[in-house]
Simulated assay, not measured.
Amino acid sequence: MPALLVPAMAAAQAQAPAQPGGDLARVGAHLRGLAAMTADFTQTDRTGKTLTGTLSLKQPGKIRFQYAPGVPLLVVSDGRALSFVDYQVRQVSRWPIGGSPLGVLLDPRKDLSRVARIVPSGQSDVVNVLVRDPKHPEYGAITLAFTQRGDAPGGLLLQGWVALDAQNNRTTVRLANQRLNPPLSDTLFRFTDPRRDRQR
């Protein structure tokens, strides 16, 4: 599985002492209340290689990482499966949505108390949540980083994440220019299969 789908902004949350589960409940409220989002992203892998592009998210289960022109890659979920498309070598790899740490973003009904915990950040305006399914260590782990934003669901805004796959490969994704709940067509979460389209 591509490393993007599995790593860390150093663990994080440091708010004044909150009630147990308080910030985790806010993260859950954010994920359930976020119908759609777009953002610019910067992705850095364990070797320091950086790629940029545009993220589009629509609930339930749809996401698209559209890389900048010249990068022949696409990561997209149509609500059923997550696909990694490499147009250069004309390959498509697919996984169930739940088989990736990104599943926490794609399934807002997930019970976070079973797979997630708040981790300290040392910053009063940052909430970090580590998600790891103890029953499925092969899925890797992801640390989501949020900042406070009063007009966003749960009072939080997703700033990015660090994913760690089962081989300990780390990928950091940082978001900018987030736009909450824009209208997004379902056609955005489809793709041209390079195994059929030899012209791509």
Rank of each mutant, 00 (worst) to 15 (best):
S77Y: 01
T47V: 02
I118P: 13
Q66T: 14
K62C: 08
Q43W: 03
L34T: 13
T47D: 13
P96N: 14
F65Q: 04
A29T: 11
R32G: 07
L82D: 02
D125M: 04
D86F: 03
K58R: 10
P69Y: 01
R117G: 10
V126G: 09
L31G: 10
L57R: 00
G28A: 15
R64S: 14
A116R: 02
D86R: 04
T44G: 00
K110T: 15
V76Q: 07
V131P: 09
L105I: 10
R32S: 09
Q123A: 07
Q66F: 02
V71L: 00
V89G: 00
S77W: 08
D133P: 00
F65G: 01
V129H: 01
Q66S: 15
S124T: 15
L73S: 09
V126K: 12
H30Y: 12
I97L: 15
L34N: 03
P137L: 08
G28I: 06
K135M: 04
G61K: 10
R90A: 12
G103D: 11
P134L: 00
V126I: 13
V131F: 12
V131E: 07
P134E: 00
L106S: 10
V115I: 15
Q66D: 14
R80N: 13
S113N: 13
G70C: 07
R32L: 03
S121K: 04
A81P: 02
P134S: 02
A39H: 12
Q91R: 14
A36Q: 06
L130R: 08
H136K: 10
R109G: 13
T38C: 01
R117F: 00
Q123W: 00
A116F: 08
D125L: 07
V129G: 02
S113C: 01
T52R: 14
A116L: 03
Q88K: 14
L31Y: 03
G122I: 14
R32H: 04
H30M: 11
S100A: 15
H30C: 03
K58M: 09
G98A: 11
H30W: 04
V131M: 01
T54E: 12
S93Y: 05
H136P: 02
L112P: 05
V126Q: 12
D107I: 01
P137Y: 02
A29I: 04
L102D: 05
T38V: 05
F84I: 07
Q88T: 01
R64A: 15
L31I: 08
T42G: 08
P60G: 11
